[in-house]
Design a protein around this nucleic acid. Structure first.
Lengths: 214, 214, 214, 214
DNA sequence: TATGAATGAGTGTTCATTCAT
DNA sequence: GATGAATGAACACTCATTCAT
C-alpha cells in the first residue's frame, strides 16, 4: 500500500519544502497535529493550536497545508507506514491456517492497541469526512480481499466450509475483528485481552470449519 | 426499552407541551430535525434550518429543546420505538436455534435498511458526541447480553461449542452483523442481500457449532 | 429608472425586514455605510466600522447584507432615487433647445455637486467592481440615448448639424460633462463654476450647430 | 517628459542595479508586473505572483521595489515613454487646424488602443491611489494646456470662436476624447472606429468654430 | 407560546514583508 | 544579489442563543 494522495486535489496544493528547515517545520506540524488531534478530537482541534504546538506562527501552517483535512491526510499517511506489517507468513514462518489466523489477529490487535487513540480518531474522521470514509472502506476491502484469497485456497484444498462466500465471509470476519478491537481499546469494554483473542480465533476457526492441525 | 433521558440533564430542561398547539409544534420540530439531519448530516445541520423546515420561528426551537443534541436525543427515542421488535420467538413461532438466528438476522437487516439514513446518522453522532457514543455501546451490550443468554442455554444443552466465551462471542457476532448492515446499506458495498444473509447465518451457525436441525 | 437589483444574485439574499425595528436597523446601516464609505473610501471601509457607526453589533450587518458590495448597491439605489429629476421640459417650462441644454447642464452639475463625495465614490467603485462598472456604462448609455433623441429631432427640424452621428455625439457630449463635473467637484481643478457652465453650454451649442434663439 | 519620481519618496528607495544580472532581474519584474496587472487588475495582483511570473524568488522583489505602488510607477514610466509622440506638426507636416486636430485624435486613439488594457489599468489605479490620481490630473492638465495654446492662437487669428474660455474648452474636449477612447476600447461600446473619429473631429471643429480649409 | 431581529464570541485565512542562509 | 521559509496583523463571517414584542 503505497503513499497515496488522500485528498483528491482541488485548491493549489502547498509547497513541498526544499530546505532542511522547511522539512523540519513540516514534520513538526504533523507531529503537533497528532498531539492536538489526540487530545481534542478532530472537530475541536484548532489550526491555531496545531501551529502553536509546533512552535511556529499561525500563518506557517498554510505554507504546507490548506486546511485541517489536508494535515490529517498527511498524518494518516505517516501512521499507515508505521502500521504496515505485510508478509506475515514469511516473517513468522507459520504456515498452518490456524496459526496464521492467530498470528494475524494478534498482530492486528497489538498494532491497534499501540495506536488506539489514533485509531479512534480515524473512526471518527471517517464518519465526518466523506473522503476519509471512502478511504477507510477501500482499505477494509483490500484487506478483506487478501483474506478472501486465503479462504478460497482453503476451500480448494477441502480444508474450509465450501458453502461460504469467500469475499463476504472475509469482510464479515474482518469487520468483526476491527469492531472488537475498537470496543476493547477505545470503548474499553469489560473483557480481557485473552478472552478477546481466544474468542476471535475460535470464531474464525469454527466459521471457516478449520480442524485443529495434527 | 423505555423512554430514557439520554442527556444527563444540566440546563433547565425545556417544557413538555400541554396545549395541542404545543404538541404539534414539538412534533413538527422533531420531524423537521429528521429531515435536516438526514439531508445535511449532524454537523452541518443548523438549528435555524430545523426551525425553518418545521415552519416556525428560529426562537421557537428553544421552547422545546436546549440544543441540537437534545432534539437529536428526542429523535432517537421516536425512531427506536419504531424499530423495536422484541419477543421474536413468540411472534414467529420459530423455536429451533438456526431458525431463530436466521429470523433475527433478517429482521435486524430489514429494520436497518428501512432506516438506513438514520442508522448512518447514529453511527456518525456516536463518533461525535460522547453521550450518544455511550448509549450506542450500552445498547449493543444489552443486545449482546440477550444473545449471550441464548448461547449459554445452547451450551448447556450440548448444542453449541462449549469452549466459546458466551458474552464475547455474542458481542463479536453482533458487532459483525451491525457492521455488515452498515457496509451493505450505507456504504453500499457490492454484494447481494442474499449473499449477505446466507453468509452471516452460516458464520453464526459454524461459529456456534450448531448442527442442522433434523 | 426603477429600483433594480444591482447584484446579479448568487448567495442567499438576506432578509427584507418585517418589523419596524428591522426597517430602522436596515436604514441605519445604509446611512452608516454612506458615512463610512465617504470617509474611508470603498476599499478601506470595514464592515465592522459600518456596524459600529450604525450602532449595532457586528453580526447584525449580515442580517441584511451579504457583503460590502451588497450594501453599496443598496446605497446606490437610495441615492439614485434622490438624484432623479426627469421631465425637465415640463418642470421648467423651457422649450428652446439652448435653454433646455443650459438647464440640463446646470441641473446635472448642481446635483453632482450636492453629492460630490458620493459621485467620486461611484467612480471609484465602478473601476473596482465589475458589476458597478457595467451599471455605470448602462446608465450612461440610457442617458445618452435620450439626448440622441433630442439631437435627431433637431436635425429633422434643420436646427442641428445633420452630419453628426446622433448617438455618438450624445455619448461624447455627456461624457464630457460628466468628466468635467468630476474635475470641478472632486479633483477641484482651478476654474470657476461660471466658466464651467458657460463653456460647456457653448461647446454643446457650437457642436450641434444651434443658432441663438430669436 | 522625463523620468520622474512618481512616489513622493519615503522609505529607503531600493537599489538601481549596477550588474547586468540586476538590470535583467529588474526588467523581468516590470514585465511580469505588466502581465500580472493586466491579467488580475491592480488590486488582485499579488507581489508573490509578480515575482513568480518574473521567475525570481518572492524576496527578490524587494531588492528593487518597496511595494506594489512602486513597481506600478516604474511600469507607468516605461509605458509612457512608449506612448509619447510629441511634435505632431513637425512629424506630419500637417499645418491646417482641422488636419492637426484630426491627426491628434487619430494618434491618441490608436495609441490608446494599442495599450487598452494598460490604459484601463491606469484609470483603475487613478481611482485607487491618490498619487496616481494626481499624476493623471496633472498630465491631463499639461496636455490640455497645449491645446489651450492652440485655441488661443486660433482665436487670435480669428479662426476660432472668441467667446470660448481656451483652457476650460481644451480640458473639456480632451476629457471627452479620453473618455470616449475608454468607452470604445475598454467598455467596448457598440459603435465603429470610424463613427468615433468622425464624430469627435466634427465636435471639435464645430465647437471651436473652425471653417473647412479652402 | 410564537416571533424574528439582535447579539458577539470565535477562527480560518491571506499576503506583504523580513531575514538567515 | 538571490532564495524561500517564517512571520503575524488584520477581518470577514457564522450561527447558537436571547429576549422584547
Amino acid at each position: 500500500m503505497e503513499s497515496q494522495d488522500v485528498t483528491g486535489g482541488g485548491r493549489p496544493s502547498r509547497i513541498t519544502p526544499r530546505s532542511k528547515r522547511g522539512i523540519r517545520t513540516r514534520q513538526a506540524l504533523i507531529a503537533a497535529a497528532r498531539e492536538v488531534f489526540e487530545r481534542d478530537g478532530y472537530l475541536d482541534a484548532r489550526i491555531t493550536d496545531i501551529s502553536k504546538a509546533a512552535g511556529v506562527a499561525a500563518g506557517s501552517f498554510y505554507t504546507y497545508f490548506n486546511d485541517k483535512e489536508e494535515i490529517f491526510a498527511a498524518l494518516v499517511e505517516v501512521v499507515q507506514e508505521e502500521m504496515l506489517h505485510p508478509h506475515l507468513r514469511e516473517r513468522t514462518g507459520v504456515t498452518d491456517p490456524r496459526g496464521l489466523i492467530d498470528a494475524a489477529n494478534r498482530e492486528y490487535l497489538q498494532s491497534y492497541g499501540r495506536n488506539a487513540r489514533l485509531m479512534a480518531l480515524f473512526e471518527q474522521v471517517a464518519q465526518i469526512d466523506e473522503k476519509f470514509h471512502e478511504l477507510r472502506v477501500e482499505r477494509g476491502s483490500a484487506f478483506a480481499e487478501r483474506n478472501a484469497q486465503m479462504i478460497r485456497s482453503l476451500q480448494a484444498r477441502g480444508e474450509a466450509d465450501p458453502e461460504l462466500d469467500p469475499l463476504v465471509t472475509a469482510l464479515s470476519l474482518s469487520a468483526m475483528v476491527g469492531r472488537m478491537a475498537y470496543l476493547y481499546y477505545v470503548a474499553e469494554m469489560d473483557f480481557s485481552y485473552d478472552q478477546l483473542v481466544t474468542t476471535l480465533n475460535r470464531i474464525w476457526f469454527n466459521a471457516l470449519g478449520l480442524r485443529p492441525s495434527a
